[in-house]
Amino acid sequence: MKVRVYVSLKNGVLDPQGRAIHHSLEGLGFAGVNDVRVGRFIELEVADTVTDASLEDMCRKLLANTVIENFRIERVAS
């Protein structure tokens, strides 16, 4: 089974990378972009027996740093 983990910076955490991308978009003439935040997308291939609790544990222990990041787990039927 495929699992997608989305890791994003918490509100209030400065994202200089997102800011640089925002400036670059403006430089290309795209109007109306109010903000850009960069996150991380991790795809896992796991056995069906892996529990939600175990996936959440993986996120808390390694995939995300919960001091600065939020995470969201999505199971994808294969």
């Binding site: 400065l14 200089p16 990378q17 640089a20 740093n65 001091v67 600065i68």
Partner: peptide, 10 residues
């Protein structure tokens, strides 16, 4: 405690 982020000036 805390975390070390990308430098503010990139």
């Amino acid at each position: 405690p805390g975390a070390l982020l990308r430098n503010a000036g990139i």
